[in-house]
Write a protein that binds this DNA or RNA. Structure first.
Lengths: 249, 249
DNA sequence: TCAAAAATAATCAAAATCTATCAAAAGCAA
DNA sequence: TTGCTTTTGATAGATTTTGATTATTTTTGA
């Protein structure tokens, strides 16, 4: 059996089964363990699969990259509940904006099957949107590596071309005095422009964001409704200024 | 058995079976091992197949699933060699465009440490670019799920804002009559516009792309240099029209 | 936690294959 | 035919791949 043939077989098996034992490959190819090991090393070198103790598995690159693992560690039922409600506001035919961020990311799976158009600046969102076959536009501009968001004047210009039925925005801080805030002025500019282009505006924020202020204000409280899981008292004072939908996990 | 007849038989066998052993060919043709070896060498020179220890295999290593079910890009030494040379053309301070596609993707790892700005329409590229801390701009526009490329008028408009020192473009077909071609008119438009915005223009194409024509022409041969691993005879007729750099794995 | 079991990396010699070389065979032109 | 070139097949030494064996590391399970 020739090397490419063997390696091809290994790749196909791994892709079909997501994980495979070395013993199985030895049996399947009739080659020795050493040979299979060498093949796996080469295939890993080439980035085709990932070596694990006892065999190999497919490159779950998306799920074990720091950005994504970070995301999964900060997954919570609270965010999930917020995302679920937000997604329920979307009707067929809508054109919506989904901001970069983990709460908004959680919305995507709940949009499956809807006939909508999505615009986003969140690069991590694109995989999930592709997977669900949702018509997607991405903003163009500078890629901010840390948050996997597109920012900058290029993105702002792209934004001006669009009008949204609904936009879903993330925020790092919400306060009575300073409104909605986020650490990065560049990202704030995107959020601000998006709000201007949208008929319906929602900020998605879990309880931890309330009474917090970060560097850049991107909107006053009046400019968007809030979807949150916060159930505490202080909420009443916010209700004077905007509409708040409280969800429970 | 005549040489062309023998080589034709070899080619057919390789294309049908994806990989073939020298012993089998000796038996099949009744020629000696030496003769078969010489045939394989010639066919490899012409870019028709790839020589491997013990026999030969087709170039695209049989995993012709162009769809993006897995994010694994099909790796071949040929593509790698092309990518390596392409990357060597990039100098510190350059602003370059990298087209979507697997050959151009392979360039990225070789750009590590260079002080450059990259613009791309390839969404898969972004992870690798982030990883290497390369300043990156992404085109905005419609996300084409199958090829993970950004296309459409939005992307074209974004493009017009940039000027590139060098651009590296992929092509699915290269022919004397029809120039550079690609299946999707939308992607062709992006490639066309990019070429217009660039001082130096390179098309990256492995041997299998020569003498092929697909749906949309995006440039004449004169409009870009070619980097390839193809070493066959027909290359001379192309050299009348453009510059070709041949690399070996 | 520790020790047994499993898996791995490193090493090495045998086997297979490769490259280079050369002489014989075949084809070709005069 | 003769002399020349090209193709072919055979051979020997170099190289690569392979599978077995070893010591080392990792995992498992009490």
């Amino acid at each position: 059996m020739l090397t490419p043939e063997r390696q091809q077989l290994i790749l196909e098996t791994v892709k079909k089964r997501h994980t495979v034992k070395i013993k199985e490959l030895v049996e399947q190819t009739g080659s020795s363990e050493s040979t299979i090991r060498r093949d796996l090393d080469q295939l890993e070198q080439a980035g085709e699969l990932r070596r694990v103790h006892g065999g190999a598995s497919i490159q779950t690159s998306a799920s074990d990259e720091p950005s994504m693992s970070e995301k999964s560690t900060i997954y919570t039922p609270e965010k999930e509940a917020i995302a679920l409600h937000a997604a329920s506001l979307v009707k067929d035919g809508d054109c919506i904006f989904i901001d970069a961020g983990s709460t908004t990311y959680a919305m995507i799976q709940h949009l499956k099957g809807k006939d909508i158009t999505v615009v986003t600046n969140g690069l991590n969102h694109l995989d999930a949107l592709s997977e669900h076959q949702i018509k997607t536009y991405v903003l163009g501009g500078l890629v901010k590596h840390r948050t996997r968001a597109v920012v900058g004047t290029g993105a702002l210009q792209t934004l001006k071309q669009y009008r949204f039925d609904i936009c879903f925005i993330g925020a790092n801080g919400i306060s009575l005095n300073d409104g909605f805030t986020t650490p990065d002025p560049e990202e704030a500019a995107i959020k601000r422009e998006t709000l201007l282009q949208s008929k319906n505006r929602y900020v998605l924020a879990d309880a931890s964001k309330f009474e917090e202020v970060t560097f850049s204000t991107f909107a006053e409280l009046q400019e968007a409704d809030i979807i949150t899981n916060h159930q505490g008292l202080p909420l009443d004072s916010y209700r004077d200024k905007t509409t708040i939908k409280v969800v429970t996990p």
